[in-house]
Design a protein around this nucleic acid. Structure first.
Lengths: 155, 155
DNA sequence: CAGGGATACTTGCGGATACAAGATAAATAA
DNA sequence: TTATTTATCTTGTATCCGCAAGTATCCCTG
């Protein structure tokens, strides 16, 4: 029949790997975001920003670095940080030496907020995602991500 | 030091597997969506709806099925279909036998639109994602998705 | 065959995001 | 030095999405 080569369509395996990613991600994020919202009044993106800052040395990071770390547009990040500043989790600090730049810096309240949410979130990530894999599979997954978007697993 | 067991935090491997998923997905979707927008004036979600309809028998599907197939809220899907109806790609057809329900049905123009966009999109998915894996890896990936969200790779 | 509840979809509304343009500061060139 | 270009962030605007409420239809029980 030679169906799958016409128009260079995807093989069933390829389709399953790709659509599975889209659907699993969508379902995971929808659930985890709803959970963070309900229990900690925090979106997943906001949580990711707090996490990224908490991991950074001095708990601060340039706006543009932060935007690329959480894969958000510059303007998107500006507004996300606006919200975190408004609720006292983050402070904006002008960069020394380059007065164009801003550092987003985690406040003490922000760090507490992060640590609280973390318990909920880690449990959610474990039960919905990590628990489905053993150590070797997790290693191979992270290798996959590194191929797809270099730097995706670190920094 | 016993750092990573305090507060049951993630191991480096776990973190890499999870954040890698978030970042790779975000980067992939951002790029593919931008590409579809620029070349075919179509969002990735709209494309996914056209694809799902094209795969369905008779090119039609109930609104609620469609919503869960593309992991979108009911209201989100209503509006997405509104847009596709407005540009002539899809028609709403009241269900026989259940007048509450609507079928979204691909028009001829919609099918052409889909086939055009498909070429671009498949090439994008291949080069950014599928080409990074061999057949066995793709199979194991799709197995992973099936664990995370059963049904994610089919239907 | 009414009445109450469930189901399928749509609408009102608010929030989050991206793109493009703007504002300020730094770097480079002339 | 001054002008031009580049870099960093913010703001104007439009779109998309989800939740909750609304509307229409169906189902089920008495």
């Amino acid at each position: 029949m030679q169906v799958s080569s016409v128009n260079s369509s995807l093989t069933p395996t390829e389709l399953a790997a790709w659509r599975g990613l889209l659907r699993s991600h969508a379902a995971l994020v929808r659930d985890l975001d709803a959970e963070l919202n309900a229990r900690h009044d925090l979106s997943l993106h906001e949580y990711e920003v707090l996490l990224t800052l908490a991991d950074a040395s001095d708990g601060r990071m340039r706006m543009s670095e932060l935007a690329s770390a959480v894969v958000l547009s510059q303007s998107g990040l500006t507004r996300l940080v606006d919200r975190l500043v408004r609720d006292g989790s983050v402070a904006r600090v002008r960069c020394e030496g380059d007065r164009r730049g801003q550092n987003a810096e985690l406040t003490d309240a922000g760090r507490r907020r992060y640590l609280e949410a973390r318990v909920t979130h880690l449990a959610g990530v474990r039960s919905r995602f990590l628990d489905h894999f053993d150590e070797a599979e997790l290693r191979s997954l992270s290798g996959f991500w590194e191929r797809v978007s270099p730097g995706a697993t670190s920094e």
